[in-house]
Design a protein around this nucleic acid. Structure first.
Lengths: 168, 168
DNA sequence: TGCAATTTTCATTTTTTTTTGAAAACTTTG
DNA sequence: CAAAGTTTTCAAAAAAAAATGAAAATTGCA
C-alpha cells in the first residue's frame, strides 16, 4: 500500500487535490504559453510527497512517454523541476521546484529577454530606413521609433526587477 | 498620389519600414499570446500617418475582412487602437494608441487578472480537501497551498504596479 | 423608410501546435 | 560486454487555433 500509493493516489481527497493542482497549473502555464502536458506534469509534482519517476508521471496522467519526456525537458530547462536520486531505483526521479521567484526569473531570462534583444536590432534597422529617406516626415517617424526604444529599454529593466520583487 | 499613397505605401523606404513594423509587432503580440493578424494590424497602424479604414488595412496586409474585423475587435478591447472620424467618408477609421503603459495595463486587467480571480477559488477548494482528510500530511500540503496563495497575492499586486512603472 | 455600403458573425478550411508511438540512443548492471 | 531497462527523438496523427469567405446584421444617407 505504501508503494502502491506512490504510483496512484488512492485516498479520495488526495485524488481531488491532485486533480485541482493539475487544473491550476495547466491554466497558469497556458498563460505563459506552455503546452498542456507541461502544466499537467508540474501539477502532479507540486503536490507529490516523494520524487516521481517519468513513468509514474506518465501513468498518473495517462499521457505518452514521449510527451512526458518532452514536458520534463521543458520544465528542466526552466529549472521548474529537478532530479533527485532514489536509492535502489535506476530510473530518474523528479521533484518540483517550488520557489516561484526563481521559476519566473528563469522564464524571463529564457523566453522573454531574447525577444527584446532581437527587437533592438529591428528598431535600429527601422531607424536607418527613416534616415535614408529625407522625404519622409522625419518628426513623426522619429517620435514613433523613440517610443519603441523606450519600450524595450523599460522591458529590459522592469522584467528582471519584477522577478526580484516576487518574494515567494 | 496623395490619396493613392494612403492605400499603398509607394516609397521604397516607407514600405521597408512598414514591413519591419509589422514584423516587430507580430512578435511582440505573440509573446502576449495574441494572434498574428492582431500584430500585423497594429504594425500597420503604428506607422500610419493617417487613420486607416478596415479595407485599407485588409488590402495592405492581404488578409480577409473577417480576420481584419476580428483583429480590430481585439485591439479595440485592449484599447490599443481608437476610431477616428474622417470627414466625407462613411467608413470607420483607426489610429494606433501609442501609449504603451495604457496598453499593458489594459492587457493585464483584461487577460491576466481574471485568471488570478479563478485561481483564488481553486486554491480555497484545494484547502478544503486537505482539511477534510486528517490522514494527509497536513504540514506538507498546507505549506504548498500557502505558497500558491502568496503567488496569486503577489501577482495581483505586482502586475498592475508593473504597468504603472512603465512610463512610456 | 429603403437601399447601398460597411461591418460582424460564424461554419468551414487552413495552418500551427501538441501528442503519440515506435524506433533509436543511451545507461546500468549482471 | 551484452542484455534489459530507461530515456530521447522524430515522423505521423490528432487536436487546437486562426483565417477565410459568404451570409446576416448594422449603419448612414438619399
Amino acid at each position: 500500500m505504501q508503494i502502491e500509493n506512490k504510483i496512484q493516489k488512492t485516498n479520495e481527497e488526495e485524488v481531488k487535490l491532485e486533480v485541482e493542482s493539475i487544473d491550476f497549473f495547466v491554466r497558469m502555464m497556458s498563460i505563459l504559453g506552455l503546452p498542456r502536458s507541461v502544466g499537467e506534469i508540474y501539477g502532479v509534482l507540486y503536490f507529490a510527497e516523494n520524487p516521481l519517476s517519468m513513468d509514474e508521471i506518465s501513468t498518473r496522467l495517462k499521457i505518452s512517454m514521449g510527451s512526458t519526456s518532452q514536458g520534463l525537458k521543458t520544465l528542466r530547462s526552466l529549472k521548474a523541476i529537478r532530479t533527485s536520486y532514489v536509492q535502489g531505483d535506476r530510473k530518474d526521479h523528479y521533484i518540483a521546484e517550488t520557489e516561484f521567484r526563481r521559476l519566473f526569473s528563469n522564464f524571463i531570462k529564457e523566453d522573454i529577454l531574447p525577444h527584446l534583444d532581437s527587437a533592438a536590432d529591428r528598431i535600429s534597422s527601422m531607424e536607418k530606413h527613416v534616415i535614408a529617406n529625407p522625404d519622409m516626415n522625419q518628426e513623426f517617424y522619429t517620435t514613433r521609433i523613440e517610443k519603441l526604444k523606450r519600450l524595450t529599454k523599460a522591458g529590459r529593466k522592469l522584467l528582471p526587477a519584477l522577478a526580484g520583487l516576487l518574494k515567494i
